[in-house]
């Protein structure tokens, strides 16, 4: 499913997920939505561990309204026109990790291989999979003083690991991670994400390690990319509600509408 509605995705997805937990949900959003007008819904979708893939195309500016700063722009970054930003940024990955998000990654729209593997892994995850994709705005903020410009990210990308996604249905194809130093992440649907570790001290199962990686990169005015944090054990939004096995939209009228006898009982209980 692709949601065309801006600012509103997490709640709409929540409602759809409640009545049909068998659907796969993929939403693509921006930083203006996720870090500002829709930040409340974003936070609570994470808190519920809503079973969806949430991708942010993060460029630090509002494009359609012609280049105003968004809330994710770094302190000291400067877009093509206007003053340097002096306000603190909202780091969406750090926020997601702090809220207990079960799958958090950052990538770059210029890193096709890494991003493809992460999106596939996110689709194989059960629960909220959040991917923050630094996506330069070529119109309003692709100048070199912009920390999210293509050149800047290319030069300052702190890549955690080389990634390869191995789908459960064809385990041998697509594997081009060399033999040697690697670890494997088992995903919900049986697929695997293979990581060839570059930054040896990063532990994607540790909140502390993930947050350190983000904050250390931030202090050096760099971007850290890769799978930052992963926890497959968090119950999803529907897990906690004691719903029946069948998706609710598939229930017949006989099940959705209690019997005449039951209403007699209800009435009697008041009398």
């Amino acid at each position: 499913m692709y949601l065309k509605w801006k600012n509103l995705k997490p709640s709409v997805t929540t409602g759809a997920n409640m009545v049909n937990k068998d659907l796969s949900f993929l939403a693509v959003s921006g930083d203006g939505d996720t870090a500002s007008i829709g930040v409340g819904q974003f936070i609570h979708a994470i808190r519920r561990n809503l079973d969806m893939v949430y991708i942010v195309e993060n460029n630090g500016v509002y494009g359609l309204t012609k280049g105003q700063y968004s809330a994710t722009v770094e302190r000291g970054s400067k877009k093509k026109k206007g003053a340097t930003n002096l306000q603190a940024p909202i780091d969406l990955c750090a926020m997601a990790i702090n809220l207990g998000c079960s799958f958090v990654a950052r990538s770059f729209s210029g890193s096709k291989k890494q991003l493809t593997a992460l999106i596939k892994a996110a689709m194989s995850h059960r629960g909220m999979a959040f991917i923050d994709v630094i996506s330069p705005c070529v119109t309003f903020a692709n100048n070199d003083e912009s920390y999210k410009s293509y050149n800047y990210v290319k030069a300052n990308d702190e890549v955690l690991h080389i990634l390869d996604y191995i789908p459960h249905f064809s385990p041998l194809e697509e594997v081009d991670v060399p033999e040697g130093e690697f670890s494997e992440v088992s995903l919900f649907d049986g697929s695997t994400l293979r990581l060839e570790t570059l930054a040896s001290d990063h532990d994607y199962t540790s909140v502390v390690s993930a947050l350190s990686a983000i904050h250390e990169a931030e202090q050096a005015d760099r971007h850290v990319t890769g799978l930052l944090y992963y926890d497959p054990e968090v119950p999803t939004a529907t897990d906690t509600l004691e719903l029946c096995e069948t998706p609710l939209v598939e229930l017949s009228e006989e099940i959705l509408r209690p019997s005449l006898e039951s209403l007699d009982k209800v009435n009697s209980s008041f009398r």
């Binding site: 997490p10 709409v12 759809a16 009545v19 609710l248 939209v249 959705l256």
Partner: peptide, 26 residues
């Protein structure tokens, strides 16, 4: 249960959830 109940973060989200469930056929 054959009905999900969610205490939303605000009324805007509550309405969004109604919309999502209606869209999905609930």
């Amino acid at each position: 249960l054959t009905c999900a109940v969610i205490q939303a973060e605000d009324e805007l989200a509550a309405a969004g959830m109604v919309l999502g469930s209606g869209w999905a056929g609930g």
